[in-house]
């Protein structure tokens, strides 16, 4: 079951006139110049583009981690950026999963504590999620490392833990910011296989930003971003 899953015909993510401008002193840089697109539930979309094209900015806006200068991002029919801070936090905890290039695990927490972090932050009883935790540990093949802290893990392992953490609440959407950017080819492939399995098994909508031509094709659709606009 996906949180707030709507009819399959409704878009999961709907972006309209999305703009993002950065002002630094007297210099103004328009990173996103009015994007319009939709992503259907269960779709696996890759966003590609050269450095500075606005890929990560777009992903952060989709993840309610940044605020647009103009336009809207709707998730399951709700405008993310008209939400109050607490609503956004709840959304990030329960309906969205975010995976970063540099894993961003909490160094002082064990693997299982890191995976349970959204539950911990939500205040729900951890016991309720024991089975889910075990399942995710099995999926990412980290059952033997559950008590380890991140510093004892390889990059690939850390990124798998980050994926498991993003999935603990069984969110409808998983956002990945260059997930293989810091991994070797073997680990990269292993991670992408995991992501693709998640997409197929759970029907999770996946949006990834990537530089990799190889891994961009693993999805259903590729969006090319250049100078803040989609190119064909």
């Amino acid at each position: 079951m996906k949180n707030d899953m709507k009819k399959a015909s409704d878009p999961c993510i709907k972006v309209e006139g999305l703009k993002k401008t950065f002002v630094n002193g007297t210099v103004t840089v328009e990173v996103l110049k009015g994007l319009d697109f939709t992503i259907a539930p269960g779709e696996f979309v890759s966003i590609m583009g050269p450095s500075g094209s606005g890929k990560s900015t777009l992903l952060y806006l989709l993840g309610a981690l940044d605020t647009p200068t103009a336009g809207t991002v709707q998730m399951n029919g709700r405008n993310l950026h008209s939400m109050r801070g607490r609503e956004k936090s709840r959304l990030r905890r329960t309906e969205l999963g975010f995976v970063f290039q540099f894993y961003n695990l909490v160094p002082n927490l064990t693997v299982e504590e890191n995976i349970l972090l959204p539950i911990i932050l939500d205040g729900k009883p951890l016991k309720m999620y024991k089975e889910r935790l075990d399942e995710l540990l099995r999926i990412i093949d980290m059952e033997d490392h559950r008590k380890h802290t991140p510093r004892k893990l390889s990059g690939g392992q850390q990124q798998r833990v980050a994926v498991a953490r993003a999935l603990i609440f069984d969110p409808g959407v998983l956002l990945l910011d260059e997930p293989t950017g810091n991994l070797d080819s073997k680990n990269s492939e292993s991670l992408m296989r995991l992501v693709a399995d998640i997409n197929k098994t759970f029907g999770t909508t996946i949006v990834q930003v990537t530089h990799s031509d190889t891994f961009s094709t693993w999805g259903d659709r590729i969006l090319h971003l250049e100078d803040g606009m989609f190119s064909d």
């Binding site: 801070g85 936090s89 959304l91 990030r92 329960t94 970063f100 540099f102 959204p118 932050l121």
Partner: peptide
């Protein structure tokens, strides 16, 4: 800063 950011990305409120 990264840990704080991670907490926030995982849904922690600013109050938390």
């Amino acid at each position: 800063r990264r840990v704080i950011g991670t907490f926030l990305s995982q849904g922690a409120t600013k109050g938390t």
